[in-house]
Nucleic acid binder design. Sequence first.
DNA 1: AGCGATAGGGTACGCCGTACGGAGAAGGAA
DNA 2: TTCCTTCTCCGTACGGCGTACCCTATCGCT
Lengths: 249, 249
Amino acid sequence: MTEQEQWGTPEGQAMIELLWDPPAPARRGPRQKLSLDEVVEAGMAVAARSVDELSMRKVAQHLGVGAMSLYTYVPGRDELFELMIDRAWADRALPDRDLPWRAQAGFHAHEAWRMYREHPWLISSNLWRMPLGPHVLDVQEDLYRVVALTGLDPATVVRSAGLIESHVFGAARAQITDTSVASRTGASRDDYYSARAGFWGSYYSEERFPTMLRLWNAGGFDDDDPADDWEFGLGLILDGIERLAAPPA
Amino acid sequence: MTEQEQWGTPEGQAMIELLWDPPAPARRGPRQKLSLDEVVEAGMAVAARSVDELSMRKVAQHLGVGAMSLYTYVPGRDELFELMIDRAWADRALPDRDLPWRAQAGFHAHEAWRMYREHPWLISSNLWRMPLGPHVLDVQEDLYRVVALTGLDPATVVRSAGLIESHVFGAARAQITDTSVASRTGASRDDYYSARAGFWGSYYSEERFPTMLRLWNAGGFDDDDPADDWEFGLGLILDGIERLAAPPA
DNA sequence: AGCGATAGGGTACGCCGTACGGAGAAGGAA
DNA sequence: TTCCTTCTCCGTACGGCGTACCCTATCGCT
């Protein structure tokens, strides 16, 4: 996303067409060695290894193809990335419609969490707006459906859904740091915290950071299961939405 | 952040020293033409123009200096970026301690919002963890102090503070997209929405996106003032925290 | 059979971060 | 004062990136 001309025609329109109506292989020229799907999947495979290794050359190499050949399937790197994102959303399961809305909303949040954990590169997308791809929108539609079950007014439904989504994203961003740094460097959470403790030893001052010190000593930062962290926020948000829907009698 | 070796010595320790104890200019060699502060501020100036124009060469050019000279002041690009982030946090005002905790928390959130609007490049940092810089930590400390006023247990204080922070970040990310795309392309919100409407005209189907269509027609997406959007979420989160602190009688 | 459209991909350009090493400036020791 | 040590500035260069351009080989269609 070079954040230019995003949706003002023509590039925006071209991107949307690529997302929704991938062109059929041409009839006239030589056979294509690949398909758009293969290119997108190769991109995901490369990104899975490490986000910043995602480059046209690497993807092409992964496919045993010259770098420039990719441009037959995809207008450029950013567009490939958008296609990858939409494809990641394609694996999102939707909640059982017979459940109460709150359980369905929780299901959505958990699926989002799972998706971010499975495809950590989604986090570092540097992409500010999710692409308007079909799979992204299918999930979005279903989330709106769920939140609309509360009977809230339209603007509040939209905002509440956005709040849920954005919370999971934020929590995933925070958590993936831990695990990705840990897995990449072989350093575990313990190492991280001991380094942090070393920092405190060197630079904290009791007058400057009294609250942090107190919270630290009280074990406020000893987060055994980081999942608890985001479920806390999710519960709080869903509680809030519930309360809006059924104001205290 | 190449997300390598973050806090495991030695780079982590070097970064922390650079943040907390910028080395005094050397006594022996020739005079330095610049200071660390000047380099950091030049970085911010370049990033303010456009995030992805931030490069060592551009920053050096902005200072009328050779590109490699910057490496006298800063170990590399990522470290420069961390210093820029900590400096952005330096401008955060702290709330009046005589206010009730909720007003103080709101003040913090508004300051964060202001900071992200003033320095949109903070959003696209691709930086998963905020640097452990002095200014970042001063603000963090004060936010913990405010949330601790609720009397909640330590773990809940930490999580609640994280929730507030992460919410503002998410909201800013969403909103900055709008304004930055708009300002950069000359396309206004109206253009964006008309393009979006064009998309709906081409690809939506009533059976596939019934809720979105209904919300759209009901004006649920007509968000006149995007600030309302995040204040909604903030209010909901603060309500939730308040409720935890003083459970319904 | 031949033409026109198309895929594959080599080469090259202008960016990037930064390793390396040389030139010259300045403090400290003689 | 002289010289040595140390440090700054920065030119050059390397390997990577996205991708514009263009040539060639391949195929469908007439």
